[in-house]
Nucleic acid binder design. Structure first.
Lengths: 246, 246
DNA sequence: GTAGAAGGGTTTACAAGTAAATTCCACTAC
DNA sequence: GTAGTGGAATTTACTTGTAAACCCTTCTAC
C-alpha cells in the first residue's frame, strides 16, 4: 500500500519535472510535434527524470506533451535507434538501464573518437575559439568552488562537445552526441559518490594548451587518458553502488 | 515526353526489383510490420535500387509492402536517425545522396573504429574463427576469377562485419553497421570504374595472418592502411565521375 | 498453500481519415 | 517570351479508432 502510494507520488513528480522542463525550453514552438517530443524526452532521460528502467507509456506521454500518440511514438522510435530507450514488442518502451558493460563500451568509443576529434580540431582551431574553451574551464572552476557539481557536469559536457564542434565533422558529431548522453547520465547518477573533479579541470587545461600550441597528437593523448581516468573512476563507483545495493 | 516515359518505366522497375527482393528475403513473416519495412527499404537503398536522391512516398511504399502508411513512416524515421534517408518537413523523405565530403568522414571513422575493432577481435579470437575469415577470402578469390564484382563487394562487407562481430562490442557493432552501408553503396556505385581488387585480397590475407599470430597492433595498422587505400581509390573515381558528368 | 485458468482492464500495433501545406500547371498581363 | 497569380491535385502531419496481445487479479481445484 505504502509502496503503491510512493510510486504514485513519484509518478506525479515526474509529471511536474517534465512540465517544468518544457516551460524552460525555448524555441520549441517552431518545431514539429515529433521533434518537440524527441527533445523533451531525450533531455528528461539525460537528467534522470525519466530514470533508467522506467517504462514510458505512449498515452501518458502524449497527454503530458499535449499531443496525440503518433508523434510521441515517432520520437520514441528515434530514441530507440539512438539507444536511449528500448522497445519490447507489445510491451512498450523502457528507458535504457545504466549497465557497466555497456558503459565500458561507451567509454572505449568516446576515448578513441574524441581523441581523433581533438587532433582534428587542433588543426583548424583559431585562437578566439580556444578562448571559448578556456571560458568554460573558468566557469567549471567557479562551479566547483560553489560545490555545484550539477553545473560542473553540464559544463564538462559542453566543453567536450565544443571540441567536437571545432573538428567540423557531421558524422563524428552525431556519434559522440549519442555517446555523450550516456556519459552525462552516468556522471549524474554517480555524482555524489565521487571525489571533487579537480583532476578533470587540470586535464582540461592541459588539453586546451596543447590545442593552442597546435600540438594535435599531444592533445589526443591527454584526451584519451582523461577519458580513461574518468572511466575507471565512474565504473568503480558504479560497481560499489551495485554491491552495496545488494 | 520521352523523358517522362522513361521515368515511369524506371518507377515500374523499382517496384519490380523491390518485390523480387521481398520474395528472396526469408523469415520476414515473423517480424512486425515496421521492422519488415525497415529491412526491405534499407536493403533497397544499400543495393542502389532506391537510388541516391530518390524521393520515397509513404503512400506508394505502403502499397508496395502491402501495409498502411504508419509502419512505413516508422521505418523511415528510423532510417533517418541512421542517416540513410533525409526528411525535409512537409516534403517527405529522400534517399541520402552519395557525397564526397560525407564519404570522406565515413571512411575516416571506419578507419579508426575498424582498426580498434580488429585489435580487440585479435585478443579473443579462436583459430576456428580465423578459419571462417579465410573461407571468405577464398570465396572472394573465386568471385574475382569469375569477374563477379558484385559478389566480391558483398563478401568484402561480410569479411569486415565478421571481424567486428568477433570484437564483441554492441556499440561498436551498430556504429560500423551504419557506416558500412554507406561504404557498400559507394563501392557498388563505382564498381565498374575501379581496377580489379587484387590488392584488397592481399590486405585481407595480411590482416587474418596477423590475427592468427595474435599481433593486434599489426592487424590494426594494416586495417587502417587498407581502409585508407580504398578511400583514396573510391574518392578519386567519384571525383572523376562527377567531373565527366558535367 | 500453490498451480492454473478465466476474465477484465490496459496498452500496443496498425489502419484510416482529415486538414493544411506544397507542388505543379495553366492562364493572364506586360 | 517571361513573370506573376490562382487553383487543383498531391502529400505530409497529425488525430483518432480498433483489434489483438499482454498483464494482473481473482477464483477454483487439488
Amino acid at each position: 500500500m505504502k509502496h503503491l502510494e510512493t510510486n504514485l507520488e513519484s509518478e506525479e513528480e515526474i509529471r511536474r519535472n517534465i512540465l517544468e522542463f518544457i516551460s524552460q525550453l525555448e524555441g520549441l514552438e517552431n518545431y514539429r510535434l515529433p521533434q518537440r517530443a524527441y527533445h523533451i524526452i531525450r533531455l528528461a532521460i539525460r537528467d534522470l527524470i525519466l530514470y533508467p528502467g522506467k517504462t514510458i507509456l505512449e498515452g501518458d506521454m502524449a497527454d503530458l506533451l499535449q499531443m496525440s500518440r503518433t508523434p510521441v511514438r515517432e520520437a520514441l522510435v528515434r530514441l530507440e535507434a539512438e539507444g536511449m530507450v528500448h522497445l519490447t514488442p507489445r510491451r512498450g518502451f523502457t528507458v535504457e538501464p545504466i549497465e557497466i558493460s555497456d558503459l565500458r563500451e561507451v567509454y572505449e568509443i568516446s576515448e578513441i573518437m574524441e581523441g581523433f576529434a581533438v587532433a582534428k580540431a587542433t588543426e583548424r582551431i583559431r585562437d578566439n575559439e580556444v578562448n571559448k574553451l578556456e571560458d568554460i574551464i573558468r566557469e567549471q572552476e567557479r562551479a566547483i568552488n560553489k560545490m555545484d557539481l550539477k553545473t560542473w557536469s553540464f559544463l564538462d559536457d559542453k566543453f567536450h562537445r565544443l571540441i567536437i564542434d571545432f573538428a567540423q565533422s557531421k558524422r563524428l558529431d552525431t556519434i559522440i552526441d549519442i555517446h555523450s548522453d550516456q556519459l552525462y547520465r552516468a556522471r549524474l547518477y554517480t555524482i555524489n559518490q565521487r571525489p571533487m573533479p579537480f583532476q578533470s579541470i587540470i586535464e582540461h587545461k592541459a588539453i586546451t594548451s596543447c590545442m593552442r600550441a597546435k600540438d594535435g597528437s599531444a592533445a589526443r593523448m591527454i584526451m584519451q587518458s582523461h577519458r580513461k581516468r574518468a572511466r575507471n573512476e565512474i565504473l568503480r563507483v558504479l560497481d560499489d553502488m551495485n554491491n552495496s545495493q545488494v
